[in-house]
């Protein structure tokens, strides 16, 4: 295995494009090193992105949004008060991944590129309307976060492409988000169902919303019908029931030892209601 430490994303993409064998990018390493250890992946070229300037930075963009470097850890994101104030749902999603030790290394980009349908930090990003900047040998392009995972363990990134940052839009006024997951214990587990809600209020009425489910389909899933169920309402009981039904109806989960299909479908509705209530409270500034 060759270990590379490029200083630019263009060089990282170039290394990947020129490589003929198995290539992996390394940021936090909490998935890649485990896969290497288990013998699931034996990279010929391992490209460490952490020396690239900006890779470990959280910066406010000119439009008032955020640019999150690909090597920013959960511990770093959680300690950033201004970011947390804007996007608490994104932070709580990443913070649910693994232990304190894992938080010292795990990244948003890594969680996204690992391609797990149960990735805890991805629903919050999709609800936030986040995009990723992708650098290839021919330049950069940007795509919505939900376009990246295409199935369990698979992404739409082409060989010779690398995610160079995650971009969040400006939060704006009277808005809030939240992420909740169900696990059968209190800590250190993988989501059986996850749900993120981001919404904006105009007075007491929900004017914008995005509802996203995790672990109930082959990829994290944006559910526009669930958002429509609450837009234009004050999130009264009827709206919450409509939200829950729409969320449950969108599920296409697997049945496994961690949760049955029926259970996951039911819980998706319950979590959607609870996450929406928390997002509403945050939007009201409480």
């Amino acid at each position: 295995m060759r270990y590379h430490r490029p200083m630019t994303f263009e060089d990282a993409a170039g290394l990947a494009a020129a490589a003929s064998g198995v290539t992996r990018y390394l940021a936090g390493g909490t998935d890649v090193l485990v896969q290497m250890r288990a013998g699931m992946v034996q990279p010929d070229d391992l490209i460490d992105l952490k020396a690239i300037p900006g890779a470990s930075d959280i910066t406010r963009t000119e439009d008032g949004g955020w640019r999150i470097g690909v090597a920013v850890s959960g511990a770093q994101l959680g300690a950033h008060e201004a970011f947390r104030a804007d996007w608490p749902g994104v932070v709580e999603g990443l913070e649910l991944v693994g232990s304190t030790q894992i938080q010292g290394r795990a990244t948003l980009t890594g969680n996204l590129c690992n391609g797990s349908p149960a990735a805890d930090s991805v629903p919050g990003l999709v609800a936030a309307g986040a995009t990723v900047e992708i650098t290839g040998t021919g330049g950069t392009r940007s795509v919505a976060v939900q376009e990246i995972p295409t199935g369990p363990g698979k992404t739409s990134l082409k060989p010779g492409e690398v995610i160079s940052a995650i971009l969040l839009p400006p939060r704006g006024e009277h808005a809030g988000d939240a992420y909740l997951r169900f696990i059968p214990r209190t800590e250190m587990d993988i989501a059986v169902v996850g749900c993120a809600v981001s919404l904006r209020l105009d007075g007491d009425t929900v004017s914008e919303a995005r509802v996203v489910l995790g672990a109930v389909a082959p990829t994290v899933m944006l559910v526009p019908e669930a958002a429509e169920a609450i837009i234009g309402t004050t999130l009264d009981e009827a709206a919450l029931e409509a939200l829950a039904s729409a969320a449950s109806a969108a599920c296409n989960p697997i049945d496994d030892k961690r949760g049955t299909k029926v259970f996951r479908i039911e819980v998706a509705g319950v979590l959607a209601k609870r996450a929406a209530r928390i997002a509403l409270t945050r939007a009201k500034g409480a």
Binding site: L33, S73, S99
Partner: peptide
């Protein structure tokens, strides 16, 4: 474990708590 599950290998890296089994020596 060697896979980030048990914490027996805990060290600090620039002050941050990490599993040393999930860091490469070359890093």
């Amino acid at each position: 474990c060697g896979t980030g599950d048990c914490g027996a290998c805990s060290v600090t890296l620039d002050g941050t708590l990490v599993c040393s089994c999930l860091v490469l020596g070359v890093e």
